[in-house]
Design a protein around this nucleic acid. Structure first.
Length: 581
RNA sequence: GCACCCAUAGCUCAGCUGGAUAGAGCGCUGCCCUCCGAAGGCAGAGGCCAGGGGUUCGAAUCCCUUUGGGUGCGCCA
């Protein structure tokens, strides 16, 4: 329970009293009643819109309802003042002890501080990265990887049961292309001179694969027809690429719970089964699509094909599921794969996709809606492009060129923590500029650094206090007399800490991990401000030998700050540091 | 032509799912270290929330529309 939730229910109790007295009609929907922090602290600690949202259904004037509520609220022992304001807001000032109690709460809960149960144990499957196993991960993948993992952490912190899943596209034409490209490198490893034709992957990273192929197969496939080597080489190369991808993810501290294989799904007959179901529903038919308006592809001609009637579920056009040769398009196994996910009993499916797959979302949702009759919600979270900058110059990437900036390049340069934090300082649906120079800068302009620095300062204070002879176990700190913390700067920090659980809930509900990053930046700012004040105002210095009781209280505040920073960073997947180096 | 995303201070971006006088950092202006907590802190200036309509007690936020950018658009995955 947060302070906000507590006082929201206090307001609802007051409402119930008014209803019992017949002053307010009963049966009002209170879902829209919110308790929030007023933007202007002069307005109080808490503000509710209760009177504004209830006035109309209650057929009362907002101000009058607010006044009636205020009258009841004033009787509450922890409410110091309750004043209607503006169009019908109700501003509350509560006993400062209410806020200070949150410090003890934080220290008692430790790593569990900030956790919420709004997820109520519901299960969610988050599919992310799912890059083709044809090469190392690049920066675009990195954003999806970081976002997906942080979202998973966030939902976990909010009480969801989370599965992290990676879908391996190990069945389509691209892995054949990979095999052919790897075969050339295999020949190269046998000292043949090779030329990489247009359409194959030129990347240097395949040299290692060629050497490994030689070590594995000797010269068995040299001068052999494609039928002889395509499959074994493909399987080998895909496995190699997936190992590399797993390593890339591990370097970012990401560990999937589940890797699902397109090939395995295709071989299990699940595709026929899923499409068969759609067929029974009358959603599969032979037909000719309208050409797109505007500029036509040069070789456009009307063509009859096998289509899924996705327009019946909100898509813009029906989608082909078979190629003219009779084999499935990419979409068909993907339908089967998503059908499989819906049958595993999750309460929610989330797909984290790159913006270039935006056009794919409607048909996926259509397929899932059709197959489950709308029972399993699928949400797509799109991550927009990442633009890299270095020395003020844009840094371009393009996967097939064989000359692209890999995830590993970035991590080698800035480390996983910085990379993750920067990726999470922007909401997922806005484009992101990643500036190497700024990421490594040591100033307030670099949020990563600023937040880490705040955490390091809390650790440094702990060390200092210990040297001065203070005991720092959490059990002891939790009993410190928090009432000694009465300076406005201290109260500001306490209030900021108390907000943390609220941001976890809000962020989880909106599926927006970046909110945690911004909250931490804010929290760090309030903490740094207090620290600096200690320079001018002696009584604000955390460790004061002449004031052991006050020092204990301040150390409790520092500890709560540290826990909040650390727990928040853990949601983002960033390691809290005890020292800056 | 259509779909999805974006547009907020000079710059980079938040804005708690519709609330009060729209916030932060950088940059700019002015303060704060002869010694202990200045890789920082305090204060100030800076806005027609891209334009126009609508919804309502109330809009940066929701709907329509125009403009400008990004991503896609029948057998690539």
């Amino acid at each position: 329970m947060t302070v906000f939730a507590d006082f929201r229910s206090v307001v609802l109790d007051a409402l119930a009293q008014l209803q019992a007295e017949g002053r307010v009609p009963s049966g009002l929907d209170t879902a829209a009643v919110a308790m929030e922090t007023p933007r202007d602290p002069a307005h109080g600690d808490l503000a509710t819109n209760a009177a504004l949202v209830l006035a109309r259904p209650a057929k009362l004037a907002p101000r009058a309802l607010a006044e009636a509520l205020a009258e009841k609220l004033r009787a509450h022992p922890q409410v110091r003042s309750a004043e209607p304001a503006g169009p019908g807001f109700l501003n509350l000032r509560v006993d400062e002890a209410v806020w200070r109690a949150e410090l003890r709460e934080a220290i008692d809960l430790g790593a569990g501080w900030g956790r919420s149960e709004i997820g109520a144990g519901k299960s969610v499957d988050i599919e992310f990265v799912s890059a083709n196993p044809t090469g190392p991960l690049h920066v675009g993948h990195m954003r999806g990887a970081v976002f997906g993992d942080a979202l998973a952490n966030l939902l976990q912190a909010a009480g969801w049961e989370v599965t992290r899943e990676y879908y391996i596209n190990d069945a389509g034409g691209q892995v054949d292309t990979l095999a052919r490209s790897a075969y050339l490198r295999y020949l190269e490893a046998h000292d043949r001179s090779i030329e990489i034709p247009e359409g194959l992957y030129p990347g240097e990273y395949l040299r290692d694969v060629g050497a490994a192929l030689r070590a594995q197969f000797g010269d068995r496939f040299v001068d052999q027809p494609e039928e002889a080597w395509l499959e074994p080489i493909r399987d080998f190369a895909v496995a190699r690429m997936m190992d590399e991808i797993r390593e890339d993810l591990a370097a970012l501290n990401i560990h999937m719970d589940l890797y699902s294989s397109e090939k395995a799904i295709a071989q299990s007959g699940a595709v026929e089964q899923a499409i068969g179901r759609l067929e029974e529903m009358g959603l599969i038919y032979r037909g000719v699509l309208e050409p797109p308006k505007g500029k036509l592809p040069e070789d456009w001609e009307p063509r009859e094909q096998t289509l899924f009637r996705s327009t019946a579920y909100g898509d813009d056009v029906d989608r082909p599921i078979r190629k003219s040769g009779g084999s499935w398009t990419y979409f068909a196994p993907d339908i089967a794969y998503h059908y499989d996910k819906t049958q595993r009993g999750y309460d929610l499916l989330v797909d984290v996709l790159g913006a270039d797959h935006g056009g794919y979302v409607k048909r996926l949702k259509a397929a899932v809606a059709a197959l489950t009759e709308g029972r399993v919600p699928l949400e797509a979270r799109l991550c927009q492009m990442v633009n890299l900058f270095k020395n003020g110059q844009p840094y371009k990437m393009s996967k097939r060129s064989g000359n692209f900036v890999t995830l590993r390049d970035v991590i080698d340069e800035v480390g996983p923590d910085v990379a993750r934090f920067v990726m999470l300082m922007r909401k997922n649906d806005a484009q992101l500029d990643f500036d190497f120079d700024k990421a490594l800068e040591q100033s307030r302009d670099n949020p990563v650094w600023y937040v880490q620095y705040a955490h390091a300062r809390t650790a440094s204070l702990a060390r200092q206090a210990q040297e001065a002879g203070f005991l720092l176990d959490d059990a002891g700190l939790a009993t410190a007399d928090a009432d000694l913390l009465d300076h406005p700067s201290e109260m500001a920090l306490i209030r900021k800490i108390a907000e943390f659980p609220r941001h976890v809930e809000g962020g989880a509900q909106a599926q927006e991990p970046h909110r945690i990053a911004f909250y931490l930046y804010d929290l760090a700012g309030v903490f740094h401000a207090l620290w600096s004040r200690g320079k001018e105002e002696e009584e604000l210095r955390f460790v004061q030998a002449s004031d052991p009781e006050g020092t204990r209280a301040r150390l409790a505040l520092v500890r709560a700050t540290q826990l909040t920073l650390a727990n928040g960073m853990r949601i983002l997947g960033v390691t809290p540091m005890d020292e800056m180096r």
